[in-house]
Simulated assay, not measured.
Amino acid sequence: MEWRDQGILLSVRGHGETSAIIDVFTIEHGRHAGIVRGGTSRKIAPILQPGAQIDVSWRARLEDHLGSYTVEPLRSRAAAALADRLSLAGLNAVTALLSFALPEREANPALYKQCEQLLDLLGQHSVWPLAYLRFEMALLDASGMGFDLSACAVTGTNENLCYISPRTGRAVSEQAAGPWVNRLLPLPPILKGEGQGGDAEIAQALQTTGYFLGEKLAPELGNRPLPEARARYVDLFLRQITER
C-alpha cells in the first residue's frame, strides 16, 4: 500500500531511539498517522514542527497498518508562530483541535483548505481572530455539530435572532427567548456572517463555539476533555483585548 499527498503536520511524538510518529492532516487521506524513520535526527527533526506544510509519501504492507512516512518540507510556519505568544497559542489551538476532533483517515478537502489558509494568516492579528472563529465553526459543521441560524427555532422568523439553543444549536429570537433567556447562548451577528465584527464580538462568539466543542462534541468523542491549547489561546486573546 502506498500513496503520496500534502498535509499539515499536527503532532509529533518519539518512537524508539531514533524514529517519530507523526499525525498529518492530509488533503486526500484525512488525518493520518505514520512513522518517520530517523525522525529525531538533526536533518529531519527541524522539518517536523506542528503546523508545517509537508509533502508525504506513506507506505505499509496492509492498509490498516500504521505504516511509514517519508517527508519533504513545503512550507514552515515556525517563524510566524514564534513571533509572538498569541500566534504560537493560535497555532497550538488549531493543531490540537484537529487532532482531537478529526476522525482518522476520512478526507475533508474543504476543511483542509480552510485550515491551510488560516495557518497562512499567522501573525496577522487584524484578521486572524475572525478566521480562527470561522475555523471552529467549520470544525463543528464537519463533526455534525453545526449551527442552524436560518430562522428562530420557536417562531420560524428570521428577525431579531439573538440567541442559540444550547441543546439544538438552533437560533432563537429575542421575542421567543422569554423566561428561558438565561439558559440560552449568545448569538452575536458575526456568527451569522454579518459584518467583520470587533474583537469583543468575536470573543463572545468563541464562548458559544467553545460550549459546543466542550459540551456537545467532546462527549461524542469518548468524553475526552477539550484540549487545553484551545483555552490557552482564548484566554490570551481575551487578556490582550482587556489590556488595550
Rank of each mutant, 00 (worst) to 15 (best):
L102A: 04
L102H: 11
L102D: 15
E104F: 12
R105K: 13
R105Q: 14
R105A: 14
A107S: 12
N108L: 03
N108S: 05
P109S: 06
A110W: 07
K113H: 08
K113D: 08
K113R: 13
Q114D: 07
C115N: 08
E116W: 09
E116H: 06
E116L: 04
E116D: 15
Q117T: 05
Q117W: 11
Q117E: 12
L118Q: 06
L119E: 01
L119F: 01
L119V: 04
L119N: 00
L119C: 08
D120R: 13
L121I: 00
L121K: 13
L121V: 01
L121R: 12
L121Y: 02
G123E: 01
Q124L: 05
S126L: 08
S126Q: 15
W128E: 04
W128C: 02
W128T: 10
L130G: 02
L130N: 02
Y132N: 01
Y132E: 03
L133V: 15
L133H: 02
F135C: 03
F135A: 13
E136H: 01
E136C: 01
A138H: 07
A138G: 13
A138Y: 07
L139H: 10
L140N: 12
L140P: 04
D141I: 10
D141M: 08
D141E: 15
D141Y: 06
A142D: 06
A142S: 14
S143L: 15
G144D: 07
M145N: 09
G146M: 02
F147W: 14
F147K: 12
F147V: 14
F147I: 02
D148M: 13
D148H: 08
D148L: 12
L149T: 10
A151G: 01
C152W: 04
C152H: 08
A153K: 08
A153F: 01
A153R: 09
A153T: 04
A153P: 00
V154T: 11
T155K: 07
T155L: 10
T157R: 04
E159P: 04
E159N: 12
N160I: 08
L161C: 03
L161G: 03
L161Q: 04
L161V: 09
Y163W: 15
Y163K: 01
I164F: 06
I164S: 00
I164E: 02
T168Q: 03
G169Y: 03
G169K: 08
R170S: 11
R170F: 10
A171T: 13
A171L: 08
A171V: 09
V172P: 07
V172I: 15
S173G: 14
E174M: 13
Q175F: 10
Q175H: 09
A176T: 12
A176H: 12
G178Q: 11
P179I: 07
P179S: 13
P179V: 12
P179M: 06
W180D: 10
W180Q: 15
W180K: 09
W180I: 13
W180R: 12
V181G: 00
N182L: 15
R183A: 04
L184Q: 06
L185R: 09
L185A: 07
P186L: 11
L187A: 10
P189Y: 01
P189L: 09
P189E: 03
L191N: 05
L191C: 11
L191H: 05
K192S: 14
K192T: 01
G193M: 11
G193Q: 04
G193I: 03
